[in-house]
Design a protein around this nucleic acid. Structure first.
Lengths: 211, 211
DNA sequence: GTCTGTGAAGAGTTTCACAGCT
DNA sequence: AGCTGTGAAACTCTTCACAGAC
């Protein structure tokens, strides 16, 4: 990967994902070129922000013209690692876990959930959405055998830290955590947290404080 | 609400939710006082950050002693609006929607999903997790009748904007959106987005760019 | 001594504004 | 003319450091 990558912040990477979606949409509409202004408006972002974000990774536009939709889409797909597929493990097959197994957007972006794990003997061995549920204790070997690089954690709070420890011991470096708890992991392991209850609390803050 | 509220950023409010969870935990452990340092360590945050965050809303601590766990918990619960219950509508009863209906953390924090809506005649009239699924067209009247103030949107991309428009017309001001698309709403309406695919993309960025 | 509360400094992010290309 | 790319300015958020309270 020979992109210049000055230093993209987390916020920049997140916006890149948005641009990507907009570009996919524009491409299906047959649009060939798009200006930072037009891209920005679609996402409620400033045109300068769009240009700065993109400038972290190279020069994709032509002055006076704008950005070529297809090429920019390709470039972002390479930056975000969407040009390839990723094998993903799902740990914790509760309601949320099952709904993620069925989530189409994942497969569409190249994220394949190839294994699911749980510790409930009732669940182990069964299939949900065509994925077999395995004993959590087999995780380290399955990770190696299936070449898994990412994990999605949807276990209860209490179990989350020990699951993360197990994932780290198994060599995984990318974890998406849905348990409502702060997790510790060694440097080099990237954990992203999705905390649905906290999102609602942020909303209720606005109402409660007289928004 | 007579708190001083200097100007709490989104990040501050999110951290408040974390502190709240830690405080709940500490209270069950019988801990009476906690220092900013101890609170911070539990969440991987700096002690100064904890103090600054709290200082947005008042002075809750005692110098030399720390913060009284029970009182601080109460105060944050008031700030975040957790001292009361909120009636919430769920729009879009797909896999994700159903899993949110079953999400215990919501009820524990006072968020009650009192109505679910869909536009699929197959689903309308049936119950999932003890909540009846209603015709989306009845939303405005049901919102009024059941005193609903928040909505969770789990419909497909294409439908998301029109659902948000309907919610806004029905008088809702707080929306939690799970559709992977940027939404427009008038000022005064707070929309928070949870975009699960984007989270995975941010992870894959780190791996793809040689993390 | 310990620990909070907070102004000031530092770091990071966004916006501005304009040079330079088409 | 229109639009990108980017240094500089503006703004925001975090950390520092210390006065003041126990």
């Amino acid at each position: 990967m020979d992109m210049k990558n000055k230093k993209a912040s987390d916020a920049t990477v997140t916006r890149l994902s948005r641009y990507y979606r907009s570009l996919v949409h524009l491409e299906t509409q047959g649009v060939a070129m798009v200006s930072s202004k037009a891209l920005a408006r679609r996402d409620g972002i400033s045109p300068a922000q769009v240009r700065k974000d993109l400038s972290c990774f190279g020069q994709f536009g032509t002055r006076g013209q704008g950005y070529p939709v297809a090429e920019l889409k390709e470039a972002i797909s390479r930056i975000l690692g969407l040009y390839r597929t990723w094998n993903v493990a799902l740990v914790g097959v509760g309601y949320l876990g099952v709904s993620l197994l069925a989530y189409r957007e994942f497969k569409a972006q190249g994220f394949h959930i190839v294994a699911a794990f749980d510790n409930d003997p009732e669940k182990i061995g069964k299939k949900r959405r065509n994925v077999i549920i395995r004993d959590i204790r087999t995780l380290p070997e399955v990770v190696k055998k299936l070449d898994i690089e990412m994990a999605i954690v949807t276990v209860p709070q209490d179990a989350a830290q020990s699951v993360v420890d197990l994932l780290v011991r198994s060599g995984l470096k990318m974890i998406l955590n849905f348990a409502p708890v702060s997790l510790r992991a060694p440097v080099g392991v990237v954990i992203r947290n999705v905390n649905i209850a906290i999102e609602l609390e942020a909303l209720s803050y606005h109402l409660a404080s007289g928004g």
